[in-house]
Amino acid sequence: MLKLESIAWRPQDGEEILKGINLTVAEGRLTVITGPNGGGKTSLAKIIAGLQTPTAGKIWLDGQEITDLDITQRSRMGIGYAFQQPVRFKGLTVRSLLEIAAGGDLCNGEICQLLGQVGLCTQDYIDREVNASLSGGEIKRIEIATVLAKKNARLLIFDEPEAGIDLWSFTGLIDAFEQLKAGRNCSLLIISHQERILEIADEIVVIADGKVRTQGSREEVLPALLENEKTGRCPLHKEVACNE
């Protein structure tokens, strides 16, 4: 359903960050992208959601080329993106942000369900402003909830959803991802370093130094990743990158 062909990206006056990425995300699958810090994962997510324009390459969603579509158009086609670093808004409340995300009014029950999925108690948060007063973990969870709220979801991207989230809520989050996968005909693309997220993946993609290093089913990729981690070797095929 999502297809990337030879995606390259170079920021203005910068070095090439993404160097010809080819990737296919199949319908209804959960794909986890992992890899070393600075490898280009977030850059790739932004390119898929339309926040960055690739310098070369093409993107398709459901057979339609979307390379030239803007963020709004892609969102309306069903692409959602939970930022690695959530944005704060002076004044906007949790309720209004979730309603924007859902594309219309939500009843308290619906908001309760969304916030419950990310482990927040509705009463405490519904009228809070999404501003600097929220803790790192709180804002991250609200960010995730804005993407879970999406009505027409075809492809949902979560950028390090585990970051800053406590262990108890994390279990709930994993459940939410599994439910999403089972319940809706959308695909999930999760950028993560977390073993428990890797364990629920259908596919794992390792990106390092702007390239796809490995791609395959969880059964094929995960054992080697974990082995590298145990032996303290350069993680995630970085061995290759390090030796280069």
């Binding site: 963020i71 709004t72 969102s75 309306r76 808004f89 002076k90 409340t93 995300a101 402003e129």
Partner: peptide, 26 residues
Amino acid sequence: EQILKLKTLGLTQEEAEEKIIQGFLR
């Protein structure tokens, strides 16, 4: 980045500005 976030939720540039201002002056 506030505009970008609201665009990823399906709003146009103008709609995003309006929502941000509405919230700000709430």
